[in-house]
């Protein structure tokens, strides 16, 4: 049993390696999205904090 599991893990690791993709451009693109998102989002909270109080 443990041997089988080991084999399976090996196969998986192998597939894993093969399937590894390098996508640095996409990473930069998505990080730019995340940063602009955060800036716009928190700027809006700041604007909200400046209006009348309401509940």
């Amino acid at each position: 049993m443990p041997e089988n599991e080991e084999k399976a893990a090996e196969v998986f690791a192998h597939e894993h390696e093969e399937e590894e993709h390098k996508t640095p451009g996409t990473v930069v693109l998505t990080l730019a999205l995340l940063i602009s998102f955060a800036v716009y989002y928190f700027a809006n909270w700041k604007a909200l904090a400046d209006v009348w109080h309401v509940r």
């Binding site: 999205l33 998102f37 716009y40 809006n44 909270w45 909200l48």
Partner: peptide, 12 residues
């Protein structure tokens, strides 16, 4: 996406 999530924040 960015405007949508921001506008869709309850208090904003």
């Amino acid at each position: 996406g960015i405007t949508g999530v921001t506008l869709g924040t309850q208090q904003i």
